[in-house]
């Protein structure tokens, strides 16, 4: 019997350490488990839908595409688990503290820096947030995109950091930055404390999700979910891996907080309703 196989995107070398560690742990816990690495999320999602892998450790954008592809094909799809740290994120749109921009409205005619074209947190969601304020990207304001790690759905922090640097350098008028990264950049000195002013914050949304489809063996899928949920931060064997992967516990999956992203993807024309990639400048 082949092992239960999960796909993960290799956005950083530590991914190997993390999933090698988890792999040994799953095997020791009685679940034959293996993982394969992808260089980008699109291919991982396509393989999940084609049944070549049993689970995909998906970005929120990859979830959106997988859901659309699955539904177009009549395949059931489910968010099995997620990290505690994937819940209720928010993105800030900030300007320099000394900027003359006093409100979101005043971004009209200005330049806003974002992360990579496929970053949910640093591009798609905040741009859609501005759309809801009546500001249409490319029409009402200029978007200056920092395309680092395209295909990684914003997992690479480089684009956001470059956007923050451009803001401080005065090259752009505002920047879109994930809440946790804004805090990180103050610590790093990229955005010294007090150097930025908060213009607006997106609503809360969820991040990564362990995605499974109806084509995987149900018992093993259930076992995989149970084992993930049973990983304890008190266990010294998994704690370093949990620290590396950035969570303290695995929680049940939930999909209601991808609605904002679904809307943003549609508004931006990133994927069509059947999950085909339609974004113009997207080459993972």
């Amino acid at each position: 019997m082949t092992a239960f196989t999960m796909g993960a995107v290799a956005y950083d070398p530590k991914v190997v350490t993390i999933w090698n560690g988890f792999r040994s742990w799953f095997v020791a816990s009685g679940l034959p488990f293996d993982y394969v690495l992808y260089s980008n999320y699109e291919r991982q999602v396509e393989d999940l839908i084609a049944g070549r892998i049993d689970a995909a450790w998906n970005s929120p954008l990859a979830w959106v595409r997988a859901r659309r592809l699955a539904e177009a094909q009549g395949l059931t799809i489910r968010a099995l688990t997620m990290r505690d740290t994937d819940r209720d994120l928010a993105t800030a749109i900030v300007t320099r503290a000394d900027s003359d921009i006093a409100s979101v409205e005043e971004l009209r005619g200005r330049t806003v820096a974002t992360g990579a074209v496929d970053s949910p947190q640093a591009t798609l969601l905040p741009l859609d947030h501005l759309r809801r304020h009546g500001l249409h990207p490319g029409t009402d304001f200029t978007v200056r995109r920092f395309d680092v790690g395209v295909g990684l759905h914003g997992d690479h922090i480089g684009g956001e950091r470059d956007a923050a640097r451009a803001l401080i350098a005065g090259e752009v008028d505002a920047a879109c930055i994930l809440d946790g990264n804004h805090l990180l950049f103050t610590k790093e000195g990229v955005l010294p404390s007090g150097s930025t002013r908060l213009l607006t914050t997106t609503g809360r949304y969820d991040h990564c999700t362990m995605t499974v489809t109806g084509s995987a063996d149900p018992d093993r899928t259930a076992r995989f979910g149970e084992l993930l949920r049973s990983m304890s931060y008190a266990d010294p064997a998994v704690r370093p891996l949990l620290d590396l992967e950035g969570l303290t516990s695995w929680e049940d999956g939930r999909t209601d907080r991808y609605r904002m992203l679904e809307a943003a993807v549609t508004a931006a024309g990133f994927y069509d309703a059947a999950g085909t990639v339609t974004a113009a400048e997207y080459q993972p």
Binding site: D84, T85, R87, D88, L89, A90, A92, L178, D179, G180, H182, L183, T186, R197, L198, T201, Y233, G246, T248, S249
Partner: peptide, 19 residues
Amino acid sequence: DPFLTLHLRAWCRSAGHGT
């Protein structure tokens, strides 16, 4: 502080505290 909620919630999330 205008960033308090943003930073506090981000930090709590990564530290395993609910908000």
